[in-house]
Design a protein around this nucleic acid. Sequence first.
DNA 1: CAGTAATCGGAACATCGTTCCGCTCACATG
DNA 2: CATGTGAGCGGAACGATGTTCCGATTACTG
Lengths: 217, 217
Amino acid sequence: MYRKRNIVPIARGGTTTSTETTAGPAAGPASGARPKRADARQNVAALVQAAKVVFTESGVDAPVRAIAERAGVGVGTLYRHFPLRSDLISAVFRHEIDECVAAAGELEASHPPGEALDLWTMRYTEFVATKRGLATALHSGDPAYEPLRDYFATHLAPTLDRLLRAATQSGEVHQHVEAADFLSAVANLCHGSGAERMVGLLLLGLRHDGAPGTTRA
Amino acid sequence: MYRKRNIVPIARGGTTTSTETTAGPAAGPASGARPKRADARQNVAALVQAAKVVFTESGVDAPVRAIAERAGVGVGTLYRHFPLRSDLISAVFRHEIDECVAAAGELEASHPPGEALDLWTMRYTEFVATKRGLATALHSGDPAYEPLRDYFATHLAPTLDRLLRAATQSGEVHQHVEAADFLSAVANLCHGSGAERMVGLLLLGLRHDGAPGTTRA
DNA sequence: CAGTAATCGGAACATCGTTCCGCTCACATG
DNA sequence: CATGTGAGCGGAACGATGTTCCGATTACTG
């Protein structure tokens, strides 16, 4: 059989449902091509929703089939909309990542640079820590996650870089780090126990005004 | 067919070959049971040897079959001797881990506590960094790696703990950390780029004499 | 030299990612 | 509203991998 058509009609064009924001391979109405079919959009939404649940329950490594089943679609459909695993992950977390970026702006405005850096890092830590498997995926080297790495590099790295520069200029931070490296380091630390403590140490390390690898002057 | 018997006889009991040290599930002659059959010991040695090569080439996640094939045995044989993946990993790296532990003693004797801590950490970093997939395996949560985690906790943690205490007592380190947490943190950092730099920051963080999460007094 | 049990090999089974393709039906069109 | 068409769907099928099982084999004991 194909699929029971218990599909609730969706408003065409105009008003966008909340799910539309999270859709991955957006075929924006701007691109000349014909807009996506209604049932297709419905499925994309269902997949993202299902993935969100499954990722939370079993981590981002959860079996593809589990997601498809929960969404009530076949694996073929899943792959049609999300050829790369990271496409689905991005769709699910994009919003949260964007919020993380936005948070930086607020923190910068309401706190001194050093504090803003600390607070933002903790926020980022929380985000990553609650996404089981995210850090591992990010550093797996698997090309299936490339776009996800890109998204991190493009959005999060510049944000952190700004915070780092500010804190350095204000004299609170004395050590230099590549934003991308720091980001990946923090993500990695979220694997193990005592993650927050370790991230805290890293932040403390940034404050040290001696040369690395040597005992305090 | 079974196996061509091109097996070179091995001295019984007495002199132990170098491989015997690395054998995993050692059926010590002490335990009343009958000693392992000669061909079995031979296979264990071949497996460890093969695993060493394959791990280096493809990381510790390498397919089981690749190891078995390289060792010239069936997968059944591999599983017979190393029911858990970590058993094989332990067998391969036990020696290096032990050397790492031993190195601590030397460093303690020839350097001030703080320096010894730094140097030992770097040595540990090198060890983990060159074992692709080791860190990931360690923190995968997969029960197949439990014994490996144990080995780390049992051998490496006490060593680092000693170094940490000494450096704290000498006034060089001001922050407290659980040795196990630190160990796992460093291992995790070895995933990403700029690993050494990040480990360096962690070590710098230990020196900080302010409260964590706050700007320098 | 024969008997026995330890050991072996690899087929068989389960899980997972990924591809492929015939079948359907949503939508534009008349 | 009827109709044609291709976007889209489902799930079988394939390949890789981990793990178990058991009949065949042979190392060792007596």
